[in-house]
Write a protein that binds this DNA or RNA. Structure first.
Lengths: 238, 238
DNA sequence: TCCTGTCATTGACCTGGAGCAAAGACCTCC
DNA sequence: GGAGGTCTTTGCTCCAGGTCAATGACAGGA
């Protein structure tokens, strides 16, 4: 709590793009650092939205819980990313819960601080709009995936995304935080059993390697091929 | 094209909330009216994003087309709603296609006009942020539905939404634009066959009434009950 | 070292809904 | 009023993946 916020992180954050060092210092002073142990909550679905957060260290996941107790993971948050900001701008309570995946620390700006922030630095509004717009696009893509692709492809996409595999990642990459089969299932809209079967098969083929709570991609192009696989036949273009 | 834009519509639009009559007039002058016949496109997935739109009259739907030709409907647009704005703020080409469902007219602000608009009336940025935030919430809800609910419940939700049925709608309501089984299927992530079967069953039960390209909800509480139905058994809260 | 709780694997079974096919209903335009 | 196009319905089949059940593998604490 007493520690200072790393202003380098703020400088790199997209939300504060275009803001200089001196101002960043004042912005940092308006925030409060909050830490949560693995499994702890930064905020909880249904509670009134009183602040927004920027993850400083660790990893968080945003989860919706349905009325019958199923969990759906909307996104994972890496350091430097903003979360919990939407209801501050569009009103309403928090539509989801933010869970610390590992011991994590976030900077927290209260609603009042946010109001001052956007009044003093209007560029933040524009940056926020770009970020939220980007999020619309991501979730729309996930939606399309869920509507049109099979589980295996969705899991492949999720792994590539979580392991930060890009076009030019030559060698493999490991997901750098602990993740269970159940977690992957909640992220891809399936069950841990199906995830387990899929990962076992891939491990047989040698495209991934996995142990308890860990997944490593050995052959990214193999996983990418699975992600791109078309559905068998038929389905004639209309 | 030569017609003037209805400033009453702009005044009611959420995007221009907080802007007075005189300014609205100038804003209206910066737009151009574009009309499309039923089935026509306002913009097309993959094209560079050069403007944003506000639907003046008619109805539009935003559709993504997958590489293998399947269509996924992201949302329907009613008069007064903004569409196509996201890529103007976060960059990139249009991620989807906007189709006129019936003969429709929209006001179109070019990218340059948009820049002037947000510079002169910063409140538009804040309004846009609220709108886009709202959209994040909506699509996240749809995502959760798709991940956790059965087809029947998703169709029920979709009909209630399309027919504008709210808590206090006593009598039935009709979807006030033509919509096929295929359209409903693309909106709910299923096939026209399944939609047809479901609607037939509901018609038997007397909760809806339907003809070619039309659906009317007779007993909203009946449809709402279906939408809320829990999955049979098991699924013990973990 | 054992004990307990969490996570993972795998087999067997079942089902919601997709895929396929064919026929019917409606609409519009000659 | 017939012909052709677009929607819709409905029966049948099949399978991806959910559900159920049981066992196994680790990890951390006492």
């Amino acid at each position: 709590m007493a520690r200072a916020i790393d202003e380098g992180l703020l400088a790199a954050a997209r939300l504060f793009a275009g803001i200089g060092g001196a101002e960043l210092h004042r912005i940092a002073e308006m925030a409060r650092l909050v830490s949560r142990p693995a499994g702890g909550e930064f905020f909880s679905q249904g509670d009134p939205a009183t602040a927004f957060f920027l993850l400083v260290e660790g990893r968080a996941r945003i989860v919706q819980i349905t009325s019958d107790g199923q969990q759906v993971t909307l996104r994972y948050i890496a350091p430097g990313e903003v979360f919990g900001a939407v209801p501050l701008f569009s009103g309403g309570p928090w539509p989801a819960t933010a869970l610390a995946v590992v011991d994590s620390t976030a900077a927290r700006w209260s609603r009042e601080a946010t109001d001052r922030l956007t009044a003093q630095y209007p560029v933040i509004l524009a940056n926020a709009l770009a970020i939220v717009g980007e999020r619309v696009r991501e979730i729309e893509d996930r939606y399309r995936e869920l509507a049109t692709e099979r589980v295996e492809q969705r899991v492949a996409h999720a792994l590539l995304h979580l392991a930060n595999v890009t076009e030019k990642s030559p060698a493999g990459a490991e997901i750098d935080f602990p993740i269970s089969r159940q977690d992957i299932a909640e992220l891809t809209g399936t069950t841990l059993h199906t995830v387990s079967r899929i990962l076992s098969a891939w491990e047989q083929q040698g495209v991934i390697e996995s142990r308890r709570m860990h997944v490593r991609i050995l052959r990214p192009e193999g996983v990418r091929a699975i992600a791109a696989e078309a559905r068998p036949e038929g389905r004639s273009r209309l």
